[in-house]
Design a protein around this nucleic acid. Structure first.
Ligand SMILES: [Zn+2]
Ligand SMILES: [Zn+2]
Ligand SMILES: [Zn+2]
Ligand SMILES: [Zn+2]
Lengths: 152, 152
DNA sequence: CGCGATCCGGTAACAGTATAACGTAAACCG
DNA sequence: CGGTTTACGTTATACTGTTACCGGATCGCG
């Protein structure tokens, strides 16, 4: 866990939402804070668990709605291959990113690689296809884990 | 639906499995036939439904096991963003492919684009990451649907 | 052929992920 | 202020995927 206050990022999110004319409500801000405080992707039900106030438990739609909002604004991303969510590492501008997912330790790295984006776009337009939401997730072994386990 | 017998493809699958030393049992062959006969991705429970013999219903593990096998041998692919499966359009050689998924009509096109594969590999290795299972799914609008609905 | 090892598939129960539908309250805008 | 939109709490339910256990088919080999 990164237990830095992380307030700077959240204020950045505040101002981004003001620019976009949407509301970063306390509920949504809280979900974003939970994502940002985690060093790994979280499932919706893990977030739900993290949000519980003692005996008081929320229901799934609450967290799914907040997640829908955050993903829509680019403040978080959904990892389709994991059924899990991560906070965006650079939410200031619209972007389509790519993810490196270590199957061994769970580490996830968000890339924003122009060469990939271009090759996707050009392959799509060869087919007359207009991409709107690219899903690019490479599942494999991160550098640290490659060293740990050595060449198989 | 493509209601061609499609027997040629299934025999191709037979011989591929013989080469690989694995068994394309009647059950697995049947699931593959259902996938190949569909013009769109099918969910596991849709396949289950398609396999039922009158009153006789199968249970989920049966179809999931067959799907695991087919995906492992490269005879079918899983579309993570849809929780659905498609038969591979060119299963004769090992490959990592990319998918264009029309959000409007459901059309799915499997690409095998070298430029994309290279850009992914090179971006990964810059991070010391060793990709094993690439997930590349572009969700958007296909050529036909772009024409139908016109430029938004 | 006899026999153990392995693979395959039927079955029941369940775990995990996501949404529908409905109502209330708060925020926004004229 | 009144009307509209947006957010959120709640219940129930749908959809997706897995665990565990067992019987039977198939394979390898003496
Ligand atoms: Zn991002
Ligand atoms: Zn790792
Ligand atoms: Zn393929
Ligand atoms: Zn289309």
């Amino acid at each position: 866990m990164d237990d830095e206050p992380d307030e700077a990022v959240l204020e950045g999110a505040d101002s981004l939402c003001r620019r976009l004319g949407v509301r970063l409500t306390p509920q949504r801000r809280r979900v974003l804070a939970i994502l940002r405080a985690s060093d790994r992707p979280l499932g919706a039900y893990e977030i739900l668990e993290a949000m519980r106030d003692g005996a008081r438990a929320l229901a799934p739609p609450t967290v799914y709605r907040a997640l829908d909002f955050l993903v829509e604004q680019g403040l978080a991303h959904k990892l389709e291959s994991l059924h899990a969510f991560v906070g965006c590492t650079h939410p200031d501008h619209p972007h389509s990113s790519q993810f490196l997912i270590c199957a061994d330790c769970g580490l996830v790295t968000e890339l924003e690689n122009d060469a990939i984006a271009r090759s996707l776009k050009s392959a799509a337009s060869e087919s007359g296809f207009e991409p709107r939401r690219p899903v690019v997730e490479l599942i494999g072994t991160c550098a640290a884990c490659s060293v740990k386990e050595g060449p198989r």
